[in-house]
Design a binder for these strands. Structure first.
Lengths: 201, 201
DNA sequence: AATAGAAGCGGACCGCAGTCCGTTTTGATC
DNA sequence: GATCAAAACGGACTGCGGTCCGCTTCTATT
């Protein structure tokens, strides 16, 4: 089960120093606590450092940026989703016809956003190249592959880009939270969209 | 030619005080200069105030936020685009069949993003409800109407949301600038997408 | 012209993300 | 156990968007 990680895995033979490892654990634990208490948007890097009992520089050394921290916190959830659509049971995983996999992909993604969306938004915001983050690239490739398998010949790469846009956390959350759109209605619209996109070659 | 404005128009009989009007002109002129010199991302509210020779508070009183300033600067361009798709000549304006209008809408929007996109990105970023800004609502309604006219019965409102997502400035700019996608290729993909969406009732 | 109060002004101030650099900790080597 | 370079640390510092509030300027009224 080869899952793409959101943060650069330390390449093999260069172990982490003990204080670094300890501080990383402290920081992750503190971050989860703070998000529990104040929500993802309410977490600040300063209070995080304070809560974990480390300096602010340490936080940024570890995660690079606020978005980087959020991505690290998301990585478990991302990995789960990735595992399911790449190696899990059909119709999301391999084995089902491509259109059904596309439909299932959207449905699962919508459910995923509803569960982890706040974190995802916090991770996306102000990430200048949020489209080139490994997980986003992987989803894109997956969609492109499914489109090809479904027989779409007209620029599957760009069509995958468009479909990714439709599933962006920010828009989904906005539809659900502000416009009170039921998740099933989002899923139905997605089904309609991808069906039409791949219909007839 | 009734064009929706991006900033709340002062309702009728309450004229602007003369110093306020003068400062607004100073600020807009200074903002355009600074963007010319440093780019939209390089403009800071502090330097803008300094350049215009006013206090920082005045800038925020005038425009509310950085995003508000950018929207004000965009409003001419927005108004032009709005006028063209609502009242201009076909195929973008009324008179052409809905599918052709949809296609033209995307093509014009892509061209528009390539011209004013940096500003549009600066306006979008961190506008929590950027989807509810008057211009965005108008585009959305327009797309929805065209979809209905084209005979789409399956949730035109959400489908319009999805199509709006595809045309977001951030994604278009990313495709062109980072992935070197030619604008014509974007337009072709859009054409393919909307054709398939409305094909067959 | 005098006046009053509302509208506008300005810049000190706040909280935040992110940087910098002198100091401390760590673990491999002898 | 002593030594040392590399890695990690921490918190003062910067620059930003945005707020606040005492002061100034305008305009309507007389």
């Amino acid at each position: 089960m080869c899952v793409v990680s959101l943060i650069p895995i330390r390449p093999g033979l260069e172990p982490e120093r003990r204080d670094a490892a300890r501080n990383r654990e402290l920081l992750l634990r503190a971050a989860r606590e703070l998000i529990e208490e104040c929500g993802a948007d309410g977490l600040t890097m300063g209070t995080l450092a304070q809560r974990a009992g480390v300096g602010k520089g340490t936080v940024f050394r570890r995660f690079g940026s606020r978005a980087g921290l959020m991505m690290t916190l998301l990585s478990d959830a991302e990995a789960g989703f990735q595992g399911r659509f790449m190696f899990g049971p059909p119709p999301l995983g391999p084995g089902a016809p491509p259109l059904e996999r596309l439909i299932a992909f959207g449905e699962e993604r919508i459910a995923w956003v509803l569960e982890f969306g706040e974190l995802a938004r916090a991770a996306d915001v102000s990430a200048y190249n949020r489209f080139d983050v490994p997980a986003a690239v992987l989803w894109h490739r997956h969609l492109e592959m499914l489109l090809r398998e479904a027989g779409l010949t007209a620029d599957p790469w760009l069509m995958a880009t468009s479909l990714s846009a439709v599933l962006e956390p920010e828009r989904i959350l906005h539809a659900v939270r502000v416009h009170q759109i039921a998740p099933e209605r989002l899923a139905a619209s997605w089904r309609e969209l991808v069906s039409r996109v791949v219909r007839g070659a």
